Simulated assay, not measured.
Amino acid sequence: MFRKRQSFLVLTLLLIASLTLAACGSSTKQGEQGNSGEKDQELLIGVIPAQGSNQMKLGADKLAAVLAEKLGRPVKAEVYPDYNGVVEAMGAGKVQMAYLGPLTYVEAHERYDVQAIVTQLIDGKPFYHSYLIAPSDSPYQSIEDVVKQSKEIRFAFGDINSTSGSLIPGIALKKAGVFKSQEDHQFKSVTYTGDHTATALAIQNKQQDVGAIDSAYYNNLVKQGKVDGSKIKTIWQSEDLFQYPWAVINSVSEKDRKTIQDAMLAIKDEDILSAFGGASGFTLASDKDYASIRQAAIEDGRLKVKQ
């Protein structure tokens, strides 16, 4: 009887050991699959519609291909129909990296703690301006003329969330007492065109009398022949604005951030550079570069800072 019990005990211990080893093996394979899954996980890039979507799509897709090669995993870019859509996609974790306007960036940083890592250079500098533009034969020569003759002017902003196409010129016009909102103003009419290309074409074709636009995108549109510079004049220029940032959400590792920065700083592809304001290259950026935009957004009531 003792021998039978001993044999039974030995068999039981062997069975337990076998099951334990099998479980460990399964766990190891699952861990290996998990690591592989992280490596193969697609990085999604969201892009705001700053200019014509076709050109931005081409540049964004080529950038995605460059980053995919450097990161060693799939990368996909998508041009969103509006600025806020990109921010919400980042907040939901559907987009891990995004090309944002400065105003959109400070809002996304405040709400979802995204971080700027790269921006573009225009003629070697990381700055641009808000312009007010008008048809070349327009009687308006300055922002003072616009204020004095506001009741005769059809005014065009870009996207309502655009820094240069809305926030900065809007603040200037509010201080002058001729604009509060699309419903409350002293103009003949106020329109939001949605992007900088639409604004430039509206001014060129005299569908609007004065428009607010990003200087870099406007100059690039003229350079590319997409608008006729001889038919448009600049009547006002803002102070320096730090260029549009590329930002990432917190789940993007420091290693991947560094890889992205190094890859973008080395880019020379004209299709990529041209898609983003006619950039001459890319340079590093950080949250502190957008302090002045953050302050302007707070003063304009667009941004509420968490206490």
Rank of each mutant, 00 (worst) to 15 (best):
residue 8 F to G: 07
residue 9 L to A: 06
residue 16 I to E: 09
residue 19 L to E: 10
residue 20 T to S: 10
residue 21 L to A: 14
residue 29 K to Y: 11
residue 31 G to N: 09
residue 37 G to E: 14
residue 41 Q to H: 13
residue 42 E to K: 03
residue 43 L to T: 14
residue 46 G to E: 02
residue 49 P to F: 00
residue 51 Q to H: 04
residue 52 G to L: 00
residue 55 Q to F: 05
residue 57 K to L: 06
residue 59 G to L: 02
residue 62 K to G: 03
residue 70 K to W: 02
residue 73 R to W: 05
residue 81 P to T: 12
residue 82 D to R: 00
residue 84 N to D: 15
residue 90 M to V: 11
residue 107 E to V: 12
residue 108 A to T: 11
residue 115 Q to M: 11
residue 120 Q to T: 13
residue 120 Q to S: 14
residue 121 L to D: 13
residue 138 S to E: 15
residue 139 P to W: 01
residue 141 Q to I: 02
residue 145 D to Q: 05
residue 149 Q to N: 12
residue 152 E to W: 01
residue 157 F to G: 13
residue 165 G to M: 01
residue 174 K to T: 12
residue 176 A to K: 02
residue 181 S to T: 12
residue 187 F to Q: 02
residue 197 T to G: 14
residue 203 I to F: 07
residue 208 Q to I: 06
residue 209 D to L: 00
residue 213 I to Q: 12
residue 217 Y to H: 07
residue 233 K to M: 05
residue 236 W to R: 06
residue 240 D to F: 03
residue 241 L to D: 07
residue 252 V to R: 03
residue 252 V to T: 12
residue 260 I to G: 09
residue 263 A to K: 03
residue 266 A to L: 06
residue 267 I to K: 01
residue 270 E to K: 00
residue 272 I to K: 04
residue 275 A to V: 02
residue 280 S to A: 01
residue 292 S to A: 09
residue 293 I to Q: 13
residue 293 I to M: 08
